[in-house]
């Protein structure tokens, strides 16, 4: 299993993946950017973005996926998302209190509206996407690696 895991799956799966993975990534970005207008939001969008990378990793093996999103980048995005969320919350102090919605609300039902909520969605999606990708890598790849070592 581990050897096939390294090299990815068959040609059919690889071809289908090449067609679908971009669409899945775009759909995740759509969900997270429209979180304040339509159902969805940062958490669901981040999970879908992470799923697109996991899809790539399952089909093509880990080398290809790490070329697109390396471990360092994933850990940077995760910590960066958490810090960005906290900074947005802290910058509410400029107008009064923690988590103050200090940006102009704008017109409802537009993409650029609702003040800090889209920014929070983006921060949470970075955090959730990179974090779940890291959990997947840790739980799946490291386990197969240690099995190889036992042989």
């Amino acid at each position: 299993m581990s050897k096939e895991h390294q090299a990815g799956m068959s040609l059919i799966v690889k071809t289908i993946t090449r067609l679908t993975v971009g669409l899945i990534l775009l759909y995740g970005i759509y969900i997270l950017l429209h979180g304040h207008i339509s159902p969805g939001g940062g958490f669901a969008g981040g999970v879908i973005v992470a799923l697109s990378f996991i899809h790539l990793m399952l089909a093509y093996g880990k080398e290809m996926a790490f070329k697109k999103l390396s471990k360092g980048a994933a850990s940077f995005l995760e910590s960066g998302g958490a810090i960005m969320f906290l900074l947005i919350a802290l910058s509410g102090f400029s107008g009064g209190y923690f988590f103050l919605n200090f940006i102009n609300k704008g017109e409802p039902f537009r993409l650029f509206s609702a003040g800090i909520i889209p920014l929070c969605n983006i921060a949470i999606s970075f955090k959730v996407g990179a974090g779940l990708f890291a959990i997947f890598v840790a739980l799946v790849l490291l386990k197969t690696n240690s099995k190889e070592k036992e042989r």
Binding site: N101, G106, S113
Partner: peptide, 21 residues
């Protein structure tokens, strides 16, 4: 108050943002 059309989003990121943190 929040300008967000999705009320769930306005609750989890504005009224109850501490929960999300």
């Amino acid at each position: 108050e929040t300008g967000a059309a999705n009320l769930v989003s306005s609750v989890i990121l504005d009224f109850r943002a501490y929960d999300t943190l």
